[in-house]
Protein backbone atom coordinates (compact mmCIF):
# COMPACT_ATOMS: atom_id res chain seq x y z
CA UNK A 1 0.00 0.00 0.00
CA UNK A 2 1.19 3.45 -0.87
CA UNK A 3 0.87 6.69 1.00
CA UNK A 4 -2.54 8.15 1.69
CA UNK A 5 -3.28 10.87 -0.84
CA UNK A 6 -6.80 11.88 0.06
CA UNK A 7 -8.52 11.37 3.34
CA UNK A 8 -12.17 12.28 3.81
CA UNK A 9 -13.33 12.41 7.41
CA UNK A 10 -16.96 12.54 8.48
CA UNK A 11 -18.00 14.71 5.60
CA UNK A 12 -21.58 16.03 5.75
CA UNK A 13 -23.50 18.06 3.21
CA UNK A 14 -27.25 18.62 3.40
CA UNK A 15 -29.28 20.79 1.08
CA UNK A 16 -32.32 22.42 2.64
CA UNK A 17 -35.49 22.06 0.59
CA UNK A 18 -38.09 24.82 0.71
CA UNK A 19 -41.60 25.24 -0.56
CA UNK A 20 -41.86 27.56 -3.50
CA UNK A 21 -42.13 31.30 -3.04
CA UNK A 22 -39.94 33.90 -1.45
CA UNK A 23 -41.82 35.50 1.41
CA UNK A 24 -43.70 32.61 2.91
CA UNK A 25 -41.44 29.74 2.14
CA UNK A 26 -41.08 26.97 4.65
CA UNK A 27 -38.39 24.37 4.96
CA UNK A 28 -39.75 20.96 4.01
CA UNK A 29 -36.69 18.93 4.82
CA UNK A 30 -33.08 18.22 3.97
CA UNK A 31 -31.57 16.38 1.07
CA UNK A 32 -29.06 14.12 2.75
CA UNK A 33 -26.64 14.32 -0.13
CA UNK A 34 -23.52 13.37 1.80
CA UNK A 35 -24.16 11.99 5.25
CA UNK A 36 -21.10 11.35 7.38
CA UNK A 37 -18.80 9.90 4.75
CA UNK A 38 -15.23 8.84 5.42
CA UNK A 39 -12.90 7.52 2.74
CA UNK A 40 -9.24 7.15 1.89
CA UNK A 41 -7.53 7.15 -1.45
CA UNK A 42 -3.98 5.87 -1.72
CA UNK A 43 -1.42 7.44 -3.99
CA UNK A 44 -1.72 6.03 -7.50
CA UNK A 45 -4.96 4.22 -6.69
CA UNK A 46 -8.34 4.71 -8.36
CA UNK A 47 -11.38 4.72 -6.15
CA UNK A 48 -14.73 4.01 -7.77
CA UNK A 49 -17.81 5.69 -6.36
CA UNK A 50 -21.02 4.01 -7.46
CA UNK A 51 -24.69 4.47 -6.74
CA UNK A 52 -27.97 5.44 -8.33
CA UNK A 53 -29.58 8.82 -8.98
CA UNK A 54 -29.74 10.95 -5.86
CA UNK A 55 -27.28 8.90 -3.84
CA UNK A 56 -24.98 11.91 -3.50
CA UNK A 57 -21.99 10.63 -5.42
CA UNK A 58 -21.55 13.78 -7.51
CA UNK A 59 -22.06 16.01 -4.47
CA UNK A 60 -19.40 14.04 -2.63
CA UNK A 61 -16.96 14.49 -5.50
CA UNK A 62 -17.55 18.23 -5.74
CA UNK A 63 -17.45 18.70 -1.98
CA UNK A 64 -14.06 17.01 -1.78
CA UNK A 65 -12.77 19.66 -4.20
CA UNK A 66 -14.59 22.39 -2.25
CA UNK A 67 -16.67 23.25 -5.30
CA UNK A 68 -19.53 22.80 -2.85
CA UNK A 69 -19.13 24.03 0.72
CA UNK A 70 -19.46 21.18 3.21
CA UNK A 71 -21.61 21.44 6.35
CA UNK A 72 -19.01 19.69 8.43
CA UNK A 73 -16.15 17.25 8.17
CA UNK A 74 -12.67 17.47 6.78
CA UNK A 75 -10.73 16.52 3.70
CA UNK A 76 -6.97 16.09 3.79
CA UNK A 77 -4.72 16.12 0.75
CA UNK A 78 -1.26 14.75 1.56
CA UNK A 79 -2.08 15.56 5.17
CA UNK A 80 -2.99 19.16 4.35
CA UNK A 81 -6.42 20.30 5.57
CA UNK A 82 -8.08 21.27 2.27
CA UNK A 83 -10.87 23.52 3.54
CA UNK A 84 -8.71 25.26 6.11
CA UNK A 85 -5.95 25.90 3.59
CA UNK A 86 -8.25 27.19 0.88
CA UNK A 87 -9.96 29.49 3.36
CA UNK A 88 -7.04 30.98 5.19
CA UNK A 89 -3.87 29.22 4.22
CA UNK A 90 -0.84 30.84 2.61
CA UNK A 91 -1.27 31.73 -1.04
CA UNK A 92 1.24 29.24 -2.40
CA UNK A 93 -0.40 26.33 -0.53
CA UNK A 94 -3.79 27.37 -1.92
CA UNK A 95 -2.40 27.33 -5.42
CA UNK A 96 -0.70 24.02 -4.80
CA UNK A 97 -4.00 22.46 -3.70
CA UNK A 98 -5.94 23.91 -6.62
CA UNK A 99 -3.33 22.62 -9.01
CA UNK A 100 -3.09 19.20 -7.46
CA UNK A 101 -6.81 18.41 -7.39
CA UNK A 102 -8.79 18.56 -10.62
CA UNK A 103 -12.14 17.52 -11.97
CA UNK A 104 -13.53 16.06 -15.20
CA UNK A 105 -17.24 16.51 -15.75
CA UNK A 106 -19.95 14.29 -17.08
CA UNK A 107 -21.26 16.40 -19.88
CA UNK A 108 -18.65 17.03 -22.55
CA UNK A 109 -21.00 19.56 -24.15
CA UNK A 110 -21.29 21.72 -21.04
CA UNK A 111 -17.84 21.62 -19.54
CA UNK A 112 -16.00 23.68 -22.15
CA UNK A 113 -16.52 27.41 -22.61
CA UNK A 114 -18.13 27.66 -26.06
CA UNK A 115 -16.48 31.03 -26.75
CA UNK A 116 -12.89 29.92 -26.26
CA UNK A 117 -10.59 28.04 -28.60
CA UNK A 118 -9.15 24.76 -27.45
CA UNK A 119 -5.79 26.50 -27.12
CA UNK A 120 -7.26 29.07 -24.74
CA UNK A 121 -9.10 26.38 -22.79
CA UNK A 122 -6.06 24.22 -22.23
CA UNK A 123 -3.72 27.12 -21.54
CA UNK A 124 -6.07 28.75 -19.04
CA UNK A 125 -4.51 26.85 -16.12
CA UNK A 126 -1.14 28.33 -17.13
CA UNK A 127 -2.63 31.81 -17.09
CA UNK A 128 -4.10 31.23 -13.65
CA UNK A 129 -1.22 29.45 -11.98
CA UNK A 130 1.82 30.69 -13.90
CA UNK A 131 3.53 27.47 -12.93
CA UNK A 132 5.42 27.21 -16.17
CA UNK A 133 7.21 29.96 -18.08
CA UNK A 134 5.23 31.66 -20.80
CA UNK A 135 7.45 30.65 -23.70
CA UNK A 136 6.77 26.99 -22.91
CA UNK A 137 2.98 27.30 -22.97
CA UNK A 138 2.52 26.47 -26.61
CA UNK A 139 4.70 23.42 -26.52
CA UNK A 140 2.83 22.22 -23.42
CA UNK A 141 -0.58 22.70 -25.00
CA UNK A 142 0.49 20.67 -28.02
CA UNK A 143 2.04 17.93 -25.95
CA UNK A 144 -1.11 17.72 -23.83
CA UNK A 145 -3.24 17.48 -26.96
CA UNK A 146 -1.07 14.66 -28.25
CA UNK A 147 -1.16 12.95 -24.88
CA UNK A 148 -4.95 12.71 -24.97
CA UNK A 149 -4.94 11.60 -28.59
CA UNK A 150 -5.72 14.83 -30.42
CA UNK A 151 -3.72 16.69 -33.05
CA UNK A 152 -1.88 20.02 -32.96
CA UNK A 153 -4.24 21.70 -35.39
CA UNK A 154 -7.17 21.03 -33.07
CA UNK A 155 -5.83 23.80 -30.82
CA UNK A 156 -7.24 26.56 -33.00
CA UNK A 157 -10.77 25.18 -33.09
CA UNK A 158 -13.81 25.82 -30.96
CA UNK A 159 -15.51 23.17 -28.81
CA UNK A 160 -18.60 22.93 -31.02
CA UNK A 161 -16.45 21.54 -33.82
CA UNK A 162 -15.69 18.35 -31.86
CA UNK A 163 -17.53 15.13 -31.14
CA UNK A 164 -18.44 14.14 -27.59
CA UNK A 165 -15.45 11.85 -27.18
CA UNK A 166 -13.04 14.50 -28.46
CA UNK A 167 -14.47 17.10 -26.11
CA UNK A 168 -14.01 14.76 -23.21
CA UNK A 169 -10.37 14.45 -24.26
CA UNK A 170 -10.08 18.24 -24.25
CA UNK A 171 -11.53 18.33 -20.72
CA UNK A 172 -8.98 15.75 -19.68
CA UNK A 173 -6.15 17.75 -21.28
CA UNK A 174 -7.28 20.86 -19.38
CA UNK A 175 -7.36 18.94 -16.11
CA UNK A 176 -3.87 17.60 -16.81
CA UNK A 177 -2.47 21.05 -17.56
CA UNK A 178 -1.95 21.75 -13.86
CA UNK A 179 0.00 18.52 -13.29
CA UNK A 180 -2.57 17.21 -10.81
CA UNK A 181 -2.11 14.25 -8.51
CA UNK A 182 -5.79 13.67 -7.99
CA UNK A 183 -8.71 13.97 -10.40
CA UNK A 184 -12.41 13.62 -9.66
CA UNK A 185 -13.91 12.10 -12.81
CA UNK A 186 -17.68 12.46 -12.66
CA UNK A 187 -19.29 10.00 -15.09
CA UNK A 188 -16.67 10.88 -17.72
CA UNK A 189 -17.85 8.28 -20.23
CA UNK A 190 -21.56 7.89 -19.62
CA UNK A 191 -22.60 10.25 -22.39
CA UNK A 192 -20.25 8.68 -24.91
CA UNK A 193 -20.87 5.94 -27.41
CA UNK A 194 -19.81 2.40 -26.66
CA UNK A 195 -16.79 2.31 -28.95
CA UNK A 196 -15.64 5.78 -27.90
CA UNK A 197 -16.15 4.97 -24.23
CA UNK A 198 -13.38 2.40 -24.36
CA UNK A 199 -11.00 4.98 -25.84
CA UNK A 200 -11.52 7.37 -22.93
CA UNK A 201 -11.39 4.57 -20.35
CA UNK A 202 -8.05 3.33 -21.66
CA UNK A 203 -6.78 6.90 -21.66
CA UNK A 204 -7.68 7.18 -17.97
CA UNK A 205 -6.06 3.79 -17.28
CA UNK A 206 -2.86 4.92 -18.96
CA UNK A 207 -2.80 8.23 -17.11
CA UNK A 208 -3.05 6.39 -13.84
CA UNK A 209 -0.24 4.03 -14.77
CA UNK A 210 2.11 6.47 -16.44
CA UNK A 211 1.47 9.75 -14.66
CA UNK A 212 0.62 8.19 -11.29
CA UNK A 213 -2.58 10.17 -11.05
CA UNK A 214 -5.28 8.95 -8.69
CA UNK A 215 -8.86 9.16 -9.83
CA UNK A 216 -12.06 9.30 -7.90
CA UNK A 217 -14.11 7.65 -10.62
CA UNK A 218 -17.79 8.41 -10.12
CA UNK A 219 -20.13 6.26 -12.18
CA UNK A 220 -23.31 4.28 -12.28
CA UNK A 221 -21.74 2.01 -14.87
CA UNK A 222 -20.43 -0.82 -12.73
CA UNK A 223 -18.60 -2.59 -15.53
CA UNK A 224 -16.33 0.37 -16.15
CA UNK A 225 -15.76 0.73 -12.41
CA UNK A 226 -14.59 -2.85 -12.27
CA UNK A 227 -12.32 -2.16 -15.19
CA UNK A 228 -10.41 0.88 -13.97
CA UNK A 229 -10.52 1.04 -10.18
CA UNK A 230 -8.64 -0.69 -7.38
CA UNK A 231 -11.15 0.03 -4.66
CA UNK A 232 -14.78 0.97 -4.70
CA UNK A 233 -17.33 2.68 -2.46
CA UNK A 234 -21.04 2.01 -2.90
CA UNK A 235 -23.33 4.87 -1.90
CA UNK A 236 -27.02 4.79 -1.12
CA UNK A 237 -28.90 7.94 -0.09
CA UNK A 238 -25.84 9.81 1.08
CA UNK A 239 -24.24 6.96 3.02
CA UNK A 240 -21.41 4.61 2.17
CA UNK A 241 -22.91 1.11 2.21
CA UNK A 242 -19.85 -0.87 1.27
CA UNK A 243 -16.24 0.08 0.72
CA UNK A 244 -13.19 -1.99 -0.09
CA UNK A 245 -11.04 -3.58 -2.79
CA UNK A 246 -12.87 -3.61 -6.14
CA UNK A 247 -12.28 -7.23 -7.05
CA UNK A 248 -13.24 -8.48 -3.63
CA UNK A 249 -16.50 -6.52 -3.60
CA UNK A 250 -17.45 -7.51 -7.13
CA UNK A 251 -16.69 -11.18 -6.37
CA UNK A 252 -18.28 -11.28 -2.99
CA UNK A 253 -20.48 -8.33 -2.09
CA UNK A 254 -21.52 -8.33 1.55
CA UNK A 255 -24.20 -5.66 1.56
CA UNK A 256 -27.65 -6.56 0.20
CA UNK A 257 -27.76 -3.37 -1.84
CA UNK A 258 -24.43 -4.12 -3.50
CA UNK A 259 -25.55 -7.70 -4.10
CA UNK A 260 -28.71 -6.50 -5.83
CA UNK A 261 -26.90 -3.78 -7.76
CA UNK A 262 -24.31 -6.17 -9.15
CA UNK A 263 -26.89 -8.81 -10.01
CA UNK A 264 -28.89 -6.21 -11.95
CA UNK A 265 -26.26 -5.75 -14.68
CA UNK A 266 -26.73 -7.88 -17.79
CA UNK A 267 -23.50 -9.67 -18.74
CA UNK A 268 -22.52 -10.05 -22.40
CA UNK A 269 -22.49 -13.85 -22.15
CA UNK A 270 -25.68 -15.67 -23.09
CA UNK A 271 -24.63 -18.84 -21.30
CA UNK A 272 -24.16 -17.23 -17.95
CA UNK A 273 -26.89 -18.14 -15.52
CA UNK A 274 -28.59 -15.09 -14.14
CA UNK A 275 -29.28 -15.13 -10.45
CA UNK A 276 -30.87 -11.77 -10.18
CA UNK A 277 -32.26 -10.06 -7.14
CA UNK A 278 -34.84 -7.59 -8.34
CA UNK A 279 -35.37 -4.88 -5.78
CA UNK A 280 -38.95 -3.77 -5.29
CA UNK A 281 -39.97 -0.14 -5.45
CA UNK A 282 -38.23 2.96 -6.71
CA UNK A 283 -35.01 4.64 -5.79
CA UNK A 284 -36.28 6.70 -2.84
CA UNK A 285 -35.86 10.43 -2.61
CA UNK A 286 -32.92 11.59 -0.50
CA UNK A 287 -35.17 14.12 1.25
CA UNK A 288 -35.78 12.82 4.76
CA UNK A 289 -34.56 9.25 4.15
CA UNK A 290 -36.10 6.22 5.91
CA UNK A 291 -35.31 5.50 9.55
CA UNK A 292 -32.89 2.81 10.63
CA UNK A 293 -31.07 1.36 7.67
CA UNK A 294 -32.00 3.59 4.73
CA UNK A 295 -32.26 0.59 2.50
CA UNK A 296 -34.70 -1.38 4.64
CA UNK A 297 -37.91 -0.63 2.67
CA UNK A 298 -36.40 -2.25 -0.43
CA UNK A 299 -34.19 -4.85 1.19
CA UNK A 300 -35.40 -8.42 0.72
CA UNK A 301 -33.71 -9.47 3.97
CA UNK A 302 -34.79 -6.58 6.19
CA UNK A 303 -35.73 -7.35 9.80
CA UNK A 304 -37.23 -5.36 12.64
CA UNK A 305 -33.72 -4.40 13.71
CA UNK A 306 -33.05 -2.82 10.33
CA UNK A 307 -36.09 -0.56 10.67
CA UNK A 308 -34.93 0.83 13.99
CA UNK A 309 -31.16 0.73 14.12
CA UNK A 310 -28.90 2.32 11.58
CA UNK A 311 -25.97 0.00 10.85
CA UNK A 312 -22.44 1.36 11.28
CA UNK A 313 -19.89 1.07 8.50
CA UNK A 314 -17.61 -1.56 10.03
CA UNK A 315 -14.56 -3.47 8.87
CA UNK A 316 -15.73 -6.99 8.17
CA UNK A 317 -12.51 -8.15 6.57
CA UNK A 318 -9.21 -6.39 6.24
CA UNK A 319 -9.90 -3.25 4.24
CA UNK A 320 -13.48 -4.28 3.44
CA UNK A 321 -16.11 -2.16 5.17
CA UNK A 322 -19.83 -2.93 5.16
CA UNK A 323 -22.81 -1.09 6.64
CA UNK A 324 -25.23 -3.96 7.29
CA UNK A 325 -26.23 -5.68 10.51
CA UNK A 326 -26.01 -9.02 8.78
CA UNK A 327 -22.87 -8.63 6.67
CA UNK A 328 -21.32 -11.82 8.09
CA UNK A 329 -24.33 -13.80 6.89
CA UNK A 330 -23.47 -13.02 3.30
CA UNK A 331 -19.92 -14.38 3.46
CA UNK A 332 -19.42 -17.46 1.38
CA UNK A 333 -19.82 -20.69 3.28
CA UNK A 334 -19.94 -19.06 6.68
CA UNK A 335 -23.63 -18.79 7.32
CA UNK A 336 -26.58 -19.40 5.02
CA UNK A 337 -28.17 -16.35 3.44
CA UNK A 338 -31.18 -15.11 5.32
CA UNK A 339 -34.29 -16.15 3.44
CA UNK A 340 -35.80 -13.69 1.03
CA UNK A 341 -39.26 -12.75 2.19
CA UNK A 342 -41.19 -11.44 -0.76
Amino acid sequence: MGKTLIEVVNLVKYFAVYTRGILLRRKIGDVHAVDDVSLKIEEGENLGLVGETGCGKTTLGKTILNLIEPDSGKVYFEGLDVYETLRSGPEEKKKYLRRSMQMIFQNPYGSLDPRMTVYDIISEPFVIHRHIPRDEWEERVYSLLRLVGLEDYHAERYPHEFSGGQRQRISIARALATDPKFIVADEPVSSLDVSVRAQVLTLLENLQKEKKISFLYISHDLSSVRQITQSVAVMYLGKIFEYGPTDEIFEEPLNPYTIALLSAIPVPDPERKINRIVLPGDVPSPINPPSGCRFHPRCPWATEKCKKEEPELREVRKGHFVACHYAENFMKGEKPLPTVQQ
Binding site: A198, L222, R226, Q227, L262, P268
Partner: peptide, 8 residues
Protein backbone atom coordinates in the same frame (compact mmCIF):
# COMPACT_ATOMS: atom_id res chain seq x y z
CA UNK B 1 -14.34 -2.50 -26.26
CA UNK B 2 -16.98 -3.11 -23.60
CA UNK B 3 -15.82 -3.59 -20.01
CA UNK B 4 -17.37 -6.47 -18.11
CA UNK B 5 -18.75 -6.62 -14.65
CA UNK B 6 -17.66 -10.17 -13.98
CA UNK B 7 -13.96 -9.73 -14.59
CA UNK B 8 -11.23 -7.28 -15.41
Amino acid sequence: AVPRIDRR
